[in-house]
Write a protein that binds this DNA or RNA. Sequence first.
DNA 1: CGTTTACTTGATTACGATCAAGTAAAGTGG
DNA 2: CCACTTTACTTGATCGTAATCAAGTAAACG
Lengths: 196, 196
Amino acid sequence: MLFSADHPFEAMYAVKSGSFKAMVSDAVRGERVVGFFLAGDLIGAEGIANQRYSYGVRALEQGSVCILQMDRLDETGRSTEVLQRALIEMLGHEVALNHRVTSSLIQQNAEQRLAAFIISLSGRMAARGLASDRLWLSMSRSDIASYLGLARETVSRMLTRFQNAGLIGLRKQYLKVLNRQGLERAAFARWLPLRQ
Amino acid sequence: MLFSADHPFEAMYAVKSGSFKAMVSDAVRGERVVGFFLAGDLIGAEGIANQRYSYGVRALEQGSVCILQMDRLDETGRSTEVLQRALIEMLGHEVALNHRVTSSLIQQNAEQRLAAFIISLSGRMAARGLASDRLWLSMSRSDIASYLGLARETVSRMLTRFQNAGLIGLRKQYLKVLNRQGLERAAFARWLPLRQ
DNA sequence: CGTTTACTTGATTACGATCAAGTAAAGTGG
DNA sequence: CCACTTTACTTGATCGTAATCAAGTAAACG
C-alpha cells in the first residue's frame, strides 16, 4: 500500500516498475477500483488540491517508485513556476481524459467496455515504447470488473468471447492481442445489432 | 454556444448567471452530455493543458459569463504564481471529484444515479447560498439521461417513481425536494433488496 | 389550428447481475 | 509427496433492470 484514501498528502509517486491500482471505498458500496498505474505514471498529484489523497493506492505486484516529497521540491533547483506549469498541464490532461472515459464507460455495454479497456492498456504500453500486443494483466479479473462496473463473471465471459472470436489469446494473466482492428470495432461499434 | 470541442483554448469563462451543458461527441455514439455548469462555476480550465477545449459548451437558457482572456491575465496585477496555485487547486479538486463521480455512476442503478443527481444539484445550489429544495431543471430530460447514461424514458419513469414515493414534487422543469433523507437513501443504498 | 418538440406511459425484450457449481493453481501441513 | 484448503477464475442457469419499440399527452410555435 503506497497510501490510503483521505490520508494527508505528503508526496507524489512516479512509478518506476510494476503496477498499482487506485481504490476508493465507502460504507455502502465497499471498495471500488478507480484506476491503474503503470511504469511512467505519476500517482497522487490531485491530492495537492485538498492536501489529502482522494484514493488509496496498492501495488499489484513487486514494483518500485520514485518518491517526490513535496516539501523538498525546492531543493531540486528548479523554479516552482516550472513545476506548477507542469502540474497544471498534467491535471488538465487528466480532467480532459476523465470526461471522455467516464462518458464512454457509462454509455457502453460490457463488451465495449472490456474491449476499450484492453485497447487502452495496449495503448499505454505503446506510449512507453513497449510491446503493445503482449500484455501482462497484473490486476485480477475482480479488479477489472470493479473498474469497469461489471460483475467479475461478466469479465470472464467477455474475455472468453473475445478469445472465441479470435480477437485475443489469453492464458491466465497473459494476454495477446491477435486482431486489433476487431477489438476496436468491438469497443466503438455495436458488434451485433440489438434487434433486426 | 460558448465554444465547441477541440477548438483552440483562448479563455476561461466564469458563469455569472444561467446554466450551461458540456458535451463531447464522436462519430459512433453521437453527442453525450458530460457535465453541467451553474452560476459560480469556472468553465474550460482543463483546456489549458493541450491548448484545446476538451468539450463543447452550450447555454441551457439565457445567461451571462465573465470571460477570462488568458493572454491578458497578467494585466490583473496579481502574480501568475497566485493564479497558478488557484488553478492547480481547482483542477485537483476536479480530478478527485471525477474519480468518485465516475466510479459511483458506473456502479449505480438508474434510481441511484438519478437520486444522486438531484442531491448533487441541490448541494451545488446550497453551496452558493441559494434555496436547495426548489430546483429549476434548466436541462432537458434527454440531457439528464445522456449525462447519467440512461434512456430518457428511464429518467421519466424514475422521476415519477420519486414523485409517487413522495420524495420530490415535480411540475415540468420545476422540482421541489420533499424528502431529502429519502432521496439520500435512494442514492446510496439499494432501496429494495434485489432478491430475498 | 396544425405542427413540432418535449415528455410520459406501456409492452416487450436483451443484457448483465446474481446464484450456483465446477475447475485449476497455489499454498499448507502431516 | 499427497490430502486439504484457499484463492482465482470459468461456465451455466435464472431472473431483474433498463433499453427499445410504440403510442399517447401536452405545451410551444408558426
